[in-house]
């Protein structure tokens, strides 16, 4: 019962973040919402580890976190190189 409440709260958060990813006017907005989405997905993977009683998912969450950080930095570098066309 409680699991359904937690999962539906997180699902609504994912829905809002993804809708900003779709309608965001500038590329920076889309990257910001992608960053938020990544942190939410780390929490969801940890919650799946709790549901399935399997600690292997936590390793997946760690690796996903490292990849999400690198992805954010790479997108930031890419946006920095794009100045001038506003």
């Amino acid at each position: 019962m409680m699991d359904i409440i937690v999962f539906s709260l997180i699902g609504l958060g994912v829905l809002f973040a993804v809708s900003r990813l779709l309608i965001g006017p500038t590329p920076a907005d889309r990257v910001v919402s992608l960053d938020t989405f990544n942190i939410i997905v780390i929490g969801v993977i940890a919650l799946l580890a709790n549901q399935f009683e399997n600690s292997l998912y936590l390793d997946i969450a760690i690796v996903y976190g490292i990849l999400a950080f690198i992805e954010t930095i790479v997108f930031a570098r890419y946006l920095e190189g794009q100045h001038g066309d506003c």
């Binding site: 500038t26 590329p27 920076a28 990257v31 910001v32 960053d35 942190i39 780390i42 940890a46 600690s55 936590l58 390793d59 969450a61 760690i62 976190g65 490292i66 950080f69 954010t72 930095i73 997108f75 930031a76 570098r77 946006l79 920095e80 794009q82 100045h83 001038g84 506003c86």
Partner: peptide, 29 residues
């Protein structure tokens, strides 16, 4: 393991958002 994830998020998330803020300032919107 959870403590390791918490420490990693506490360091990585502000650094990533700071880099994003700098980039979106420079890309002049």
């Amino acid at each position: 393991k959870l403590l390791l994830i918490i420490v990693f998020i506490a360091f990585a998330n502000p650094i990533g958002s700071s880099a994003l803020a700098k980039a979106s300032y420079k890309s002049c919107d």
